[in-house]
């Protein structure tokens, strides 16, 4: 039981890191970036290439993957989404779905359809023995720690720094933010940069935990992380973390105790129930403004 719980929290932490990307972009640009899951896949492939083909040490490969995904995220936003800033949200949504397929098929051309075996970056580290005999894999420890560190840094960033406060201002009212002298386009670019950098980290963790890398590797975790973001209350940073972890735990427990075929159905079923009772998600904002 304990082992399942820890596995669940670990998988949930990866979902949470992905969900943060969804939630920040939604919060600030007010769009669902469905290509976000595929940036994870790119992060996976890029780090894979550095480690397997060029023998780059894992930590440096991760940093390089983050840098490349950051640039990719900014580029996607600049080329595909920015021209649609004043278009209907439906047009942006469809563009995002198109971008998702574009990335998947580009990966198919570059890396082929055969799955790649992702190297175990923690192969020299033994699994930890817990009280009660449960074993915890190093990737679980790293995923949980990384998630906590990222959460704390992002919370401090948005509440303490000038740039972070400006992001919150832009998320509320782009026109008023412009009047303050905030460069809205630059702020949105920064959001994509942060989200995509995090996606690279998530990609490495995901591929280490589930070491089969394919062009579609990012799409299912992407959709689940999106679900986690909605579950926790889209736009909310702590919501993304809570939603991600709950989703991971529910998924692993359902897989272990109910049925591995039904696990995904149960995950999405829980989402539906939660949304019936709390349409804005667990920590979603229901603001009643005074007039």
């Amino acid at each position: 039981m304990l082992a399942h719980l820890i596995n669940g929290i670990s998988l949930g932490s990866i979902y949470a890191i992905i969900a943060l990307g969804y939630t920040m972009v939604y919060g600030i640009a007010k769009m669902l970036n469905f290509a976000h899951g595929d940036v994870i896949m790119v992060g996976g492939y890029v780090s894979f290439c550095f480690m397997s083909y060029m023998n780059v040490p894992a930590p440096i490969a991760v940093l390089l993957a983050m840098a490349i995904c950051t640039v990719l995220g900014i580029t996607i936003e600049r080329l595909a989404y920015k021209p649609l800033r004043s278009a209907t949200s439906l047009a942006v949504l469809i563009t995002a779905i198109g971008m998702s397929y574009f990335l998947q098929n580009s990966a198919l051309i570059i890396w082929g359809a055969n799955p790649k075996a992702y190297p175990n970056i923690f192969k020299d580290i033994e699994a930890f023995e817990m009280v009660g005999g449960a074993r915890v894999s190093p990737v679980a420890v790293v995923a949980i720690t990384a998630n906590l560190v990222i959460m704390i840094i992002l919370t401090l960033f948005t509440s303490r720094t000038k740039m972070g406060k400006a992001m919150r201002a832009v998320s509320e009212d782009k026109g008023a933010a412009t009047l303050m002298g905030i460069n809205v386009n630059f702020t949105i670019s920064m959001t994509f940069a942060i989200g995509s950098g995090l996606a690279a980290i998530a990609g490495v963790l995901l591929c280490t935990a589930y070491p089969t890398l394919m062009p579609t590797t990012g799409s299912m975790p992407g959709i689940k992380a999106f679900t986690a973001a909605v579950f926790g209350g889209i736009g909310s940073i702590p919501g993304a973390m809570i939603g991600g972890i709950l989703l991971g735990v529910i998924e692993i427990l359902a897989r272990a105790y109910i049925s591995s075929e039904l696990a995904d159905a149960i995950v999405f079923g829980v989402l539906i129930v939660v949304l019936i009772f709390r349409p804005t998600g667990l920590l979603g904002k229901q603001i009643h403004e005074k007039v």
């Binding site: 919150r168 009047l179 905030i182």
Partner: peptide, 29 residues
């Protein structure tokens, strides 16, 4: 976003304060 640099400020219709920022953070913005 550079108009405010020139030395003029607009206090918009409907106030448009940042509801989820504190009073002080609004002023900092």
């Amino acid at each position: 976003h550079k108009v405010v640099n020139q030395g003029m400020a607009l206090c918009p219709e409907g106030r448009r304060v940042f509801a989820q920022l504190s009073v002080r953070e609004n002023l900092e913005m």
